[in-house]
Structure formats: C-alpha cells, structure tokens
C-alpha cells in the first residue's frame, strides 16, 4: 500500500473471502501440517491403550490374556499400524522442529540444524532400547 488509508471513525469492513473448510487439501504443505496435527489423536489413542493394558494387569492374568486376545484382532493390528505411522511422524517432525524453535549459536553462528536435531535422535534410540530391554525382561 503506497498511501496510508484516510482516517475513519469506524473501521471499514474488510472484504474477506471465506476460506474453505477443506483449505488444507489444496497444498501438500498444509496437508502435511494437518497430518502432523492429527498425530495428536494417535497419541491419545496410545494412552488409552496403555491404560487399558495396565488396568488389565491390575485385574489379574485372565484380563491380561483378554487384552492380548483383543490386540490380535487383525482390525486392531491394522489400526495400531496406522497409529504407529502417525506417532513416528510426530516423533520425526518434533525432533526436526527443535533446531528451528531453539537455534543454538556458537560464536554468533547458528549451528547447522542436523547438529541440534541429532541428540534428539540419539536419545530416541537409547530410550527406545532401554524400554524394550525392560519390557522384554532384560534378555
């Protein structure tokens, strides 16, 4: 805008086109954004699953067997696989976001992004291994 708009007592109503509810399907970038945001549902689903498992454990071996039988349903496995893809997507986008959200400077220069993201991935590998080791009984 070259000229500042003349002063008006009442703000003129802006012309705004209504954005479609499906705006995020128009570009791959925004579609990926919505996919990332929807990973929240996979995380919530996982918490529900984990609480169900713990509840079953507290209710005795029969309930644990029942839980395992439920998990073997092909539909549940398929659903879990989709949820797994979403949480993996969450992890990767989250780790890659760290250097953008918290740039680290050394001598006034920004460290390359991979150097900030790398410790996240290292922690991911180590923590995943420790958890698996604990669950599999230290074998």
């Amino acid at each position: 805008m070259k000229q500042p708009p003349a002063y008006t007592l009442y703000h003129p109503k802006w012309y705004r086109k209504r954005v479609s509810t499906w705006w995020w399907t128009e570009q791959w970038r925004s579609f990926k954004f919505i996919l990332r945001e929807l990973s929240s549902l996979a995380v919530i689903y996982f918490v529900a699953l984990l609480l169900w498992l713990l509840w079953s454990l507290g209710r005795g071996p029969d309930k644990y067997l029942e839980f395992q039988a439920w998990m073997k349903d092909p539909l549940v496995i398929a659903f879990n696989l989709i949820a797994l893809l979403f949480v993996l997507y969450h992890s990767i986008t989250w780790f890659n976001l760290a250097p953008k959200a918290m740039p680290i400077r050394v001598d006034g220069k920004r460290l390359p992004e991979w150097m900030v993201a790398a410790p996240n991935y290292a922690a991911w590998v180590v923590i995943s291994a420790v958890i698996a080791w604990l669950i599999l009984g230290g074998k």
């Binding site: 984990l50 879990n80 797994l84 991911w124 923590i127 995943s128």
Partner: peptide, 21 residues
C-alpha cells in the same frame, strides 16, 4: 510432545504390532 516422541513409538510397536503378530 517431547516425552511422547521419545517413548510412544517403541511401546506402540511392541504392544500393538510386534507382540500380537
């Protein structure tokens, strides 16, 4: 977000996919 990114994939993989299969 951090805690979920670190621990959820391995737990979901084990209990939701690897053990049932």
């Amino acid at each position: 977000g951090m805690i979920a990114a670190l621990v959820v994939p391995v737990l979901l993989f084990l209990f939701g996919v690897a053990f049932p299969l």
